[in-house]
Design a protein around this nucleic acid. Structure first.
Lengths: 349, 349
DNA sequence: CTGAAAGCGCTAACAA
DNA sequence: TTGTTAGCGCTTTCAG
C-alpha cells in the first residue's frame, strides 16, 4: 500500500481536502467534532504530512535576518560566509536569509536596527549582540509582535523567548581550565587571562568556568585577574607586556576573546609562545596557523556552519510552528589541537 | 521579479517544458544546439532548480540500506538509533532507510548479504565492515551494477568508488598520542595499547598515528606492543592483568577499540584508573560514565548523527547524480573531556 | 462550517 | 528531436 496522502485522509475522515487542510494547519472554522474525526483518521491510516509538497503549494518565502556586529574580524567573516553559503543551499527551500550589521558597542544603534526589522517584511531574526537592557527590550518588542527571535552566539538570558544558539560559555571556560591544568603538567607559575572586555556576559561566563577548574590547582597555578584590551592594539601591547614581565613565571595564557592578533604578536615578540601553554577561542585562519606552528596549544571552537544552520532550522520551526526540534540542536564545544584540526573549507564559489 | 521556474526557462530558451526537463536531467534525445541554448538561458535568467518540486513529481522513493555488524555493542546501538531517527526525518523526503546485519567477522556472510542487496530494490548502500578481499569484491560487484556504495565508519581503501564516511583514523591516533603525551605531564613509564584485533585496518591506522606522536617522547614514554583481546572477556582479563603487572610503572593506557567494558573493569579492579591516563574511543554511556567518575581522561569520538546523515546525503547525491556535496562532509575528530561532554540525547519517542 | 477546483515547480507518458 | 498534458501532495480562493 502506498503512503497515505491528504486525499486518503479526506476519504477516511469523510470530509473534503479543504477541511483536512484546515485541521492540519490548525485553522479556525471547523466544528470540534470534525476536527476530532480528522485526527482519528490520521491515527487510523497513519498519515504523515509531506512538508515539501506543503511548502511548494504555499509558495511563501520566509525571510530571515542575521543581525551581526559591523566590525570584520575573522570570526564574523566566517559567520558571514556560512550565512551566504546556507542562503544558497536554502534558496529553494522557501527560505531566504540576509545579513544586517550594527556596531557591537552601540546598544542604541542595535536597538534601532532591531526596531526597523519589525517593520520590514521579515519572518525571523537571529541576533548576535552583547546583552544590554536596550537590546533586551528591543528583542522583547519583536517578540511582542510575534516575530520569532533567537540569540545567536551571544546569550540573551533576560530576553525570555529568545532561544540561544551557541555554546555554553561556562562549560567552555571549564574545558579550557581543564586543558590548562593538564597541559601545564607539574609546572608552577602564573596563568594570564586576556580578553577584550569583561563587560560581555560571554567573557564573564567563560571566566567563571575557568576559575571553577583552576581553583582546584591553586597550590600550583596562580591565576591573574582578567586583563582587558578594549580592542585597542596600543593598550593590548602595554597590558600584555606588563603582565609578561611583572609576574612570576608565566606558564599559561588564556585568550578569552577570539580576536587574538595583537596579543599573539606581543606574546611572540617576547618569546613566550614556547614557554607558556596558550589556549584561545574559535578556529580561524589565525588560530589555525598558530596551532600548526605550535605557538598555540589548543583552541576551543564552535562549528560556525552548525551554528548558522541550527539557527535557521530553529527559526524555521518557530515560524511554521512545527515540532520542537530543539534537542538535536545543542552546539558542541570542540577542542582543536594541531592533530585533529579539520581542513580549511575550500572556499566554494 | 519572482524566482524563475522551468516555465520561464522554457520561454527564455524557446523550447517546451519537456525539453527543459530533458536538459536539466541530462536525458538523451536533444540536439546539442538545443542543449546549449537551454544552458545559456539558465545562466541568463539565473535559474535554480527546485528540487523539492522535482522530487514531488518524480514520486520515487529511494531505498537506502545500512549494512551493520550483527553484534550489539553500544556504538552499534547508537548507529541503529541514529539511522532510525533519520529514517523518521526523511520519511517524506523521498528516501527510506533500513538496516541489514551481518556477522562482523565472517566475510563470506557479509559478501553474501551484499550480493543479496543488489538483487533487491535498493538504490544505495552504506557498508560498515572490516576490509577483506571478499567484502571488497562484493562492493566492486555492486559498483559494477551502478549501485552507489559508501564505506561507513570502516574505510575500504581498495574498493575504489566507495566514498568513505568516517574519521581519519590515523589523525585520530595522532590526536590520542598528543593528549597522552601532554596529559602524562613529565611522568616516565609505560604506555599500554589495547585493542580487539590488529587485523582491522582502523586499528592499524590508529596505532600508526599514535606511534608517530609517541616516538617524539621516547625518552620518557615507553609504548608497548598492541595487545589484542579478540573480544574475549577471559582473554581480556588475562592480557590486561599481565600487562599491568609486568611492566614498569604504567602511566597511560590507550584503548583503541570502542568496546572497553572488560578492559576498564580489570583496570579498575587493579586500581589503575587513577594512576594512569586512560584514553579511549567513542562516546557511549559507558565512556560517559568513566569520564564523569574520572576513570577515563579523554575520549575521541565522531558524531554518530553526522555520520549517518552525512552518509545519507552523500548516497542521495550519488543516486540522483547532483552536486558533489563532498567538501562539507568531512567528519570531525572530536575530543571529549568531562568538561565539554554533550548531554546525552533524550531518547525521543 | 464545508467543499470544488485551480495551481505551486517539476516529471513522465504519449503524440507529433 | 520536440511539444502537450496530466498529475505528484498540498494550499487556497471562492462558492455554497
Amino acid at each position: 500500500m502506498d503512503k497515505p496522502t491528504t486525499k486518503d485522509l479526506a476519504k477516511a475522515a469523510r470530509v473534503s481536502l479543504a477541511t483536512v487542510d484546515r485541521v492540519l494547519n490548525g485553522r479556525a472554522g471547523v466544528r470540534q467534532a470534525t476536527v476530532v474525526r480528522v485526527h482519528k483518521a490520521i491515527e487510523d491510516i497513519n498519515f504523515v504530512r509531506n512538508m515539501s509538497a506543503a511548502n511548494l503549494a504555499r509558495k511563501k518565502e520566509y525571510q530571515i535576518i542575521f543581525l551581526l556586529p559591523d566590525h570584520d574580524d575573522e570570526f564574523i567573516d566566517l559567520i558571514k560566509k556560512e550565512v551566504a553559503e546556507s542562503g544558497r543551499f536554502l534558496a529553494h527551500e522557501h527560505t531566504r536569509v540576509s545579513i544586517v550589521r550594527a556596531p557591537a558597542n552601540d546598544p542604541h544603534q542595535i536597538a534601532k536596527e532591531i526596531d526597523k526589522l519589525s517593520a520590514d517584511k521579515v519572518d525571523g531574526v537571529a541576533i548576535m549582540a552583547p546583552e544590554t537592557p536596550l537590546v533586551r527590550d528591543a528583542i522583547l518588542r519583536l517578540e511582542a509582535r510575534n516575530l520569532p527571535v533567537i540569540a545567536f552566539v551571544s546569550h540573551q538570558p533576560n530576553a525570555d523567548g529568545a532561544y540561544y544558539v551557541g555554546i555554553n560559555n561556562e562549560a567552555a571556560g571549564r574545558t579550557v581550565g581543564q586543558l590548562m591544568a593538564r597541559f601545564t603538567g607539574q609546572r608552577r607559575g602564573t596563568v594570564l587571562v586576556l580578553t577584550e572586555t569583561m563587560q560581555s556576559r560571554d567573557s564573564q561566563e567563560r571566566r567563571l568556568g575557568f576559575d571553577a577548574i583552576m581553583e582546584k590547582y591553586d597550590t600550583r597555578l596562580n591565576v591573574g585577574p582578567s586583563m582587558e584590551t578594549y580592542g585597542d592594539p596600543q593598550r593590548s601591547e602595554e597590558v600584555v607586556k606588563m603582565a609578561l614581565l611583572s609576574q612570576t613565571p608565566v606558564v599559561g595564557i588564556y585568550l578569552m576573546h577570539h580576536d587574538i592578533r595583537k596579543a599573539m604578536q606581543v606574546i611572540e615578540e617576547m618569546d613566550m609562545a614556547q614557554k607558556a601553554v596558550i589556549i584561545g577561542h574559535e578556529l580561524t585562519s589565525l588560530t589555525r596557523a598558530r596551532l600548526i606552528d605550535g605557538a598555540m596549544d589548543a583552541v576551543i571552537t564552535q562549528d560556525v556552519g552548525h551554528l548558522v544552520r541550527s539557527s535557521i532550522r530553529v527559526l524555521g520551526s518557530k515560524i511554521t510552528r512545527v515540532s520542537p526540534v530543539a534537542s538535536q540542536e545543542r552546539i558542541r564545544i570542540e577542542i582543536i589541537l594541531r592533530e585533529n584540526m579539520p581542513e580549511e573549507k575550500s572556499s566554494q564559489t
